[in-house]
Design a protein around this nucleic acid. Structure first.
Length: 155
DNA sequence: CGCGTTTGACCCGCGC
DNA sequence: GCGCGGGTCAAACGCG
């Protein structure tokens, strides 16, 4: 695994969890004024286990700016077609909230990484238009490794 | 008994 | 200032 890349969305250990997966880069940043350069694009995608590799110099949030000010957080979101809400992505999550959102009849679930000192958050909701899709969002960067971390180069 | 989930309350920012 | 929408807290509860 290249040293200048990181996996914001870690590996799913069970590819059969979903039928399709989309990376929604447009929803990556909170603000529409945020800018990102080419080296922050998604540079590769491992089809076998649906890994998404983001070349971000090791820490994407450190280079995202809005009006010359750093954004506090970045968010990666993608949707998967799955009948399972929570996909096993190699991290251990603890649910801390549930909310009905106005725009959708489906609830939104909030998860936090259960590793002490790691404040990465995860948000899961089903699409309003097609409830067979699950929208998963990650916020923050893990300060530790996943339990079953793999990299594209190792496959 | 330890840890995760549930669930209503609380909080906070924003628009009116 | 107030209400609303969305995010988080935390006590009670459940389960292994």
């Amino acid at each position: 695994m290249a040293s200048n890349s990181s996996f914001l969305s870690p590996n799913f250990s069970e590819p059969g969890d979903f039928d399709e997966i989309y990376f929604e880069f447009g929803d990556f940043f909170v603000s529409e004024e945020a800018e990102f350069s080419e080296d922050q694009q998604v540079v590769s995608q491992c089809q076998q286990n649906s890994l998404f590799q983001v070349n971000d110099g090791g820490n994407l949030s450190s280079s995202v700016q809005k009006n010359n000010q750093r954004l506090k957080s970045t968010r990666v979101s993608f949707k998967t077609k799955s009948d399972r809400d929570v996909l096993d992505d190699g991290y251990k999550w603890r649910k801390y909230g549930k909310k009905m959102v106005k725009s959708s009849s489906n609830p939104r679930n909030y998860y936090r990484c259960s590793i002490e000192g790691c404040n990465v958050k995860k948000r899961i909701e089903r699409m309003e238009e097609d409830s067979s899709y699950v929208i998963t969002s990650y916020e923050g960067t893990h300060n530790h490794h996943a339990l079953n971390q793999l990299s594209c180069s190792e496959m």
